[in-house]
Simulated assay, not measured.
Amino acid sequence: MLRAVVIGAGFAGEGHTRALQHAGVEVVALCGRELPVVEARATALGVPHASTDWCATLERLRPEIIALATPAALRRDVIEAAVALDCHLYCDKPLATTTAEARALCSLVESTSLRHAFAATRRYDPSVVWLAELVAQGTIGAITKATYQVRAHLAPPLPWSWALSLEQGGGLLNGHFPHLLSILERVLAGPVCAATGKAAFAISQAPVLPGIHDFRDWGARADTLTPDELAQAEWRECDADTSYEAQLRFDTPTGEVSVALVSGPSVTAGQLRLVGERGTLIADGEAAFRIFLDGKELPIPSRLTAALPALDGGCQDRWAALAQDFVADIRGEPHAPYLTFHDGVRYQEAAEAIRRGHIWVH
Score class of each variant (00 low, 15 high):
residue 20 L to C: 08
residue 24 G to A: 08
residue 229 E to A: 12
residue 238 C to A: 12
residue 131 L to K: 00
residue 209 L to I: 13
residue 174 N to R: 15
residue 115 R to K: 14
residue 141 G to F: 06
residue 69 A to T: 07
residue 65 I to L: 13
residue 83 V to K: 01
residue 82 A to C: 14
residue 302 S to A: 15
residue 289 F to W: 01
residue 225 L to I: 07
residue 295 G to C: 10
residue 47 V to L: 10
residue 106 C to P: 01
residue 82 A to L: 09
residue 361 V to C: 10
residue 109 V to S: 01
residue 181 L to V: 09
residue 83 V to F: 08
residue 237 E to W: 04
residue 302 S to L: 08
residue 27 V to S: 03
residue 348 Q to H: 13
residue 306 A to D: 10
residue 62 R to C: 14
residue 137 Q to Y: 03
residue 349 E to H: 08
residue 267 V to A: 09
residue 246 A to I: 06
residue 361 V to D: 00
residue 330 I to C: 12
residue 314 G to K: 04
residue 321 A to T: 00
residue 309 P to Y: 02
residue 199 A to G: 11
residue 179 H to P: 06
residue 93 K to N: 03
residue 245 E to R: 15
residue 63 P to C: 04
residue 305 T to Q: 12
residue 145 K to S: 15
residue 135 V to M: 04
residue 193 C to Q: 15
residue 360 W to N: 10
residue 61 L to V: 09
residue 166 L to Y: 03
residue 18 R to W: 10
residue 108 L to N: 03
residue 106 C to V: 02
residue 226 T to E: 07
residue 250 F to G: 11
residue 226 T to G: 04
residue 26 E to Q: 15
residue 327 V to Q: 10
residue 153 H to V: 05
residue 202 A to Q: 11
residue 348 Q to V: 03
residue 311 L to M: 06
residue 109 V to G: 02
residue 42 A to Q: 06
residue 51 S to Y: 11
residue 9 A to D: 14
residue 163 A to S: 09
residue 318 R to I: 04
residue 53 D to G: 05
residue 165 S to Q: 14
residue 220 A to P: 04
